[in-house]
Amino acid sequence: MLDIQNVSKSVDGKPIVQDIQLSIQKGKCIGLIGPNGAGKSTVVKLISALEKPSAGQIQFMGKDVQDWSVKKLAQHIAVLTQEGLAPYPITVYDAILMGRYPHLGFFQRESKRDYEIVEEVLKITDLTEFRDQLLDTLSGGERQRVAIAKAMVQQPELLLLDEPTTYLDIGHQLNILKLVQDWQKRDGLTVVMVLHDLNLAAQFCDELVLMDHGRVVRVGTSEDIIAKEMLESVYHANPEIIRHPKTNIPQILL
């Protein structure tokens, strides 16, 4: 579905991302992890065509993402960033409805079907009671849930998340990731997410991509990546690795 071929990106001669090769299968959840400045967010920006690679190309559904029109691409790829939506005073309902934008022609208004999709998503994301509230009156966690709902309404095949839980408490973190996980199972969605929290990454992703200094260090399962030597070499920290008592997934202790 997504093929990242020898992609590099440098800004003012300084390499940010170097020679990335990555192939992502449909229906998988891929976690991008790595220290600050590893180039994770840039990879997301390159995939969503927000930035242009300096070399190489990214094939999405058989076509370079740079050749897609912004609108067409948004029919297939939705993105959730750590800032999410700006606290702009419009209603939750209207903000979510904007997710239908890429599916509408220039002169076309939303149809009954579009409104139905929004209603459905309001239920799934548990936002029905907030529908008439203004975005700027919501908390960060609630606003991030609106952003997820907006992405859902977009009905993409690929969802990119760039540290979607950074500013959230653990309750909201889990809530957001659960929503993504359920959605992925329900619709066969492909997910690429940047996460700082290694424990969450290990629990929610099928495969992890460990990055450092703009390069991919290793691709593998949480078993391969959440290992002492591996993390030490990249993070220059000394974590203890234990197993989650219920799921047996490796987790770190600091």
């Binding site: 927000l50 912004v70 067409k72 800032e83 939506l85 934008y101 977009q154």
Partner: peptide, 24 residues
């Protein structure tokens, strides 16, 4: 008046607008 939607979407942030399909 045909750009009302786009103006509202820009209100949610430029990146957010781009990701929802607006050529910012």
């Amino acid at each position: 008046l045909f750009f009302i939607k786009e103006l509202n979407m820009l209100g949610l942030g430029e990146e957010a607008a781009h990701h929802s399909g607006v050529s910012v």
